[in-house]
Design a protein around this nucleic acid. Structure first.
Lengths: 150, 150
DNA sequence: CTCATATATTTAACATAGCAAATATTGCAC
DNA sequence: GTGCAATATTTGCTATGTTAAATATATGAG
């Protein structure tokens, strides 16, 4: 007698082996391994690194913009900037014109951390490009961008 | 005089706009939006859903295997299974032969949740396929799989 | 000017991620 | 069978993710 109350092997939903959300996590996990290792040396986390990177790339900016660019929710951004303040890696002050807005900027100490890790970061990026291949990486980025249309 | 101590705009590291880790998060965020919405109805989280899905797909299994398949760290798995136990959606018991191992299984109540959300989940998957395209999705999964070689 | 409403950020509360240390069992050497 | 190294899970701690509620400031209607 066949028990059809419980489908045997993923015939109902796509198998978790070909699940987009899971595949995205798995890939990300692999990419972040070396990056976390690089950052653990200087005692900052992946998200703290993203904040510094964005501030370095775009310059001083308000909290919402920073969160958007660093791909963080506002509450996370607030807390992370607070710890970066304590570490002296960023500054934060209310906007003169609109006092609701907070302007965040990187400090020389923050910039120094980026400079210190620059070679390591480039090496990691190069390794990824070597393993995956330049064209596939470009394809990947393009496809991932399409998800914003969802 | 040019200030070359602080590179102006991402000339040193790849721009955060073309950063693989960030692109992976952004895409995942978009994919998870509708899924979280679907799950919030029945009061379970994304990770709890992954655990249930894996248990349903592969049947009863030990904690390590479950964590690996659901793409969770063991400590996370432990805690999530604990809350699922309290909800009565899974069972957990020590293996007879090796009492270090814990065998986790889905309950009828857990299976019922999956069955309830089946149509919604399939609709979400279909929508993604419609927007991104079947071939691109396949390409994406293949490229993401390559990251395991890192 | 005053109040209701909209905007920008922060807090609060709960669930997870990630890492290190602690537990519990096994299996094996002596 | 005792003790030690290896294996399987769980706990403890700090940092984030996520959502909802609280704060603070700005703006426009009347």
């Amino acid at each position: 007698m066949i028990d059809d109350t419980k489908p045997a092997g993923g015939s109902v939903l796509p198998s978790t082996r070909r699940s987009i959300p899971i595949a995205l996590i798995r890939a990300r996990e692999k990419v972040m391994g070396p990056i976390r290792e690089m950052l653990s040396d200087c005692g900052i986390t992946e998200q703290q690194w993203r904040i510094l990177r964005v501030l370095e790339e775009y310059g001083p900016q308000d909290a919402s913009t920073l969160a958007e660019r660093a791909c963080l929710l506002l509450p996370s951004q607030t807390r992370i900037v607070q710890t970066l303040l304590e570490k002296g890696l960023v500054t934060r002050q209310a906007d003169e014109k609109d006092r609701r807005k907070q302007t965040v900027a990187i400090t020389p100490a923050g910039q120094a951390i980026i400079n210190d890790k620059l070679q390591d970061a480039k090496a990691i990026a190069a390794r990824i490009e070597e393993v995956i291949g330049k064209e596939k990486l470009a394809q990947l980025l393009d496809i991932l961008e399409d998800f914003q249309k969802l």
